[in-house]
Design a binder for these strands. Structure first.
Lengths: 296, 296
DNA sequence: CCATTTATCTGACTTTAGTCAGATATTGTG
DNA sequence: CACAATATCTGACTAAAGTCAGATAAATGG
């Protein structure tokens, strides 16, 4: 890695903590400690239960309880037991809490505006564009890929989203029951990978062993709002690593003619067209790739 | 200001506090509280006195004293009285302190590297470029311009740097004693503006009343490493505002043929060429601008 | 030389943030 | 229904961060 790149990242870091340190003071400036302000923000318009608040902010149960109590004492939130499960407690913003939140919002807007204020119109446009680029790429960098059980909640959600998209994009729709997509038990244990962005599942891919030396890639999917970040490329590379680890020598896969980006990506990743190897009625193109030795 | 711009700034802010929140954890991870680690970083290679450390980090004197004491107890810094002013105390890093700092540095590098690691080569280049752009423009935005006494320390430093640069750039050099640059007392009180970036003086400009309706701009200078951020443009606009406030109707100025950027900037700001109005031997071009009404 | 200013230190204090071990109430399970 | 699991609360604690009022010692200005 180039030294200059690392230096630029660190320098950027210093600059934004100086510059947006001030931006984060929007949490302050209303005489409330940060912890309380963060909670106030995390309670959505429709309220939420204490458990999910705690999880989202990573708070200790006792700590969260006390913070909420002080917000309640200030008349900003109302806390009441969930009628369905009376152990659970629901937090909602009171009218005063809503306006307090709006005040924080206004403060935050003012600070953002004051940052832009000192700039010419051209500079403003360039700053905003560069910020969007940094944000996108930092998101791309913080995507983590890990194997998960194929029947976990997020795995099922990803696959459902995948099927839904296929149904929308294929001419004539898509039925998972057709073409060997459902049920058929795998010969050997496969791998199901999930890509996560800040905890949220934004992509998946499965590797299914066909015989001792060949595995098939299935269910490659990336959430629409996360495309263009290289998630698919990384999922593919991770699946290939898994395959090498399993002793596979060759990966094959099929895809539909309407999935143009997928075809381009596979070709770019070194996959070559090959002949039909199954009777999947949705498959129009077939790819294969010989795996080299395990890197690292 | 466009709503979308403000939203992008706020979204960027959230993204980087999430992403570089992790980067700032480099301050942690070595079992030392943040305050101590920040101090360790602020003490340069050559040490510094407690006062300037306090000022740079914005610490209370008692707090700073205690933090330094605990660093001293850990054998990381040495504190001794300044031989020139024995009230003042000088802090230097011990060998152990230097290596501890290096450890923090390595941690910081690792975190920066891990941010870049998840990206492709192309993405890396784009991220680093966008970061540099954001940094530059955030610096541009945080430049503050204010009037200061012409004989303040920073004012004198700026003017000295200005003269030095003229001497380097003019064919045949530049002598402040020549051409009415020094000494000559102003008819009425003028204004001296200094542009500061995070406290550091990075530019200056003076306004000198010539008669009841005409003022002259002199000593416009921007630090070389801060050029291209629009500092001069903003200084010029601020000087024009000052002139309007003083009831002036017209601004004039002269400049040397070697200062091409300056000529371009004046022309772009609405200045027109005019005839020689003084006997300054260094002046090759003369500009003037009629001031409109005071805005705002 | 004396009063004032300046630079730092000390003691006493507060607030924020966070942890941990139980206590309490409610719900699900055999 | 007893028992375990879950969701939250309470009490008792700690560490970090910061504030404030003097105390102390050295330098400065008349």
């Amino acid at each position: 890695m180039e030294k200059a790149f690392i230096e630029q990242v660190r320098s950027f870091n210093r600059a934004v903590t100086l510059g947006t340190g001030a931006l984060n003071d929007s949490y302050l400036g209303r005489g409330r400690p940060l912890g309380q302000a963060r909670l106030l923000f995390e309670i959505g318009h429709d309220g939420s239960d204490i458990g999910s608040l705690r999880e989202r902010l990573g708070l200790d149960s006792g700590y969260a309880s006390r913070l909420l109590k002080s917000l309640e004492a200030d008349g900003l939130v109302a806390i009441e037991s969930d009628s369905e499960d009376r152990r659970r407690r629901l937090v909602t913003l009171t009218a005063k809490g809503v306006s307090e939140r709006a005040a924080y919002d206004a403060l935050s807007d003012d600070l953002a505006r004051s940052l832009l204020d000192g700039l010419s119109t051209g500079q403003r446009g360039r700053l905003v564009a560069a910020m969007a680029e940094v944000e996108r790429l930092m998101n791309a960098a913080s995507i983590a890929i890990a194997a998960e059980p194929e029947d976990s909640r997020d795995a099922r959600l990803c696959v459902a989203a995948y099927y839904k998209e296929l149904d929308e994009r294929f001419e004539g729709g898509f039925d998972p029951g057709n073409g060997g997509y459902a049920g058929k038990p795998a010969e050997a244990a496969g791998v199901f990978l999930i890509a996560r962005l800040h905890g949220r599942a934004v992509g998946c891919g499965a590797l299914k062993p066909l015989d001792a030396s060949t595995a098939e890639i299935k269910r490659m999917w990336v959430a629409p709002d996360t495309r263009g970040l290289g998630v698919a490329r990384r999922l593919l590379a991770a699946l290939e690593d898994e395959a090498r680890r399993m002793g596979m020598e060759r990966i094959i896969l099929d895809t539909n003619r309407s999935l143009l980006e997928a075809q381009a990506m596979y070709r770019k990743a070194g996959y070559r067209d090959t002949g039909r190897y199954n009777d999947n009625p949705y498959a129009d193109f077939f790819f294969e790739k010989e795996l080299g030795a395990l890197a690292g």
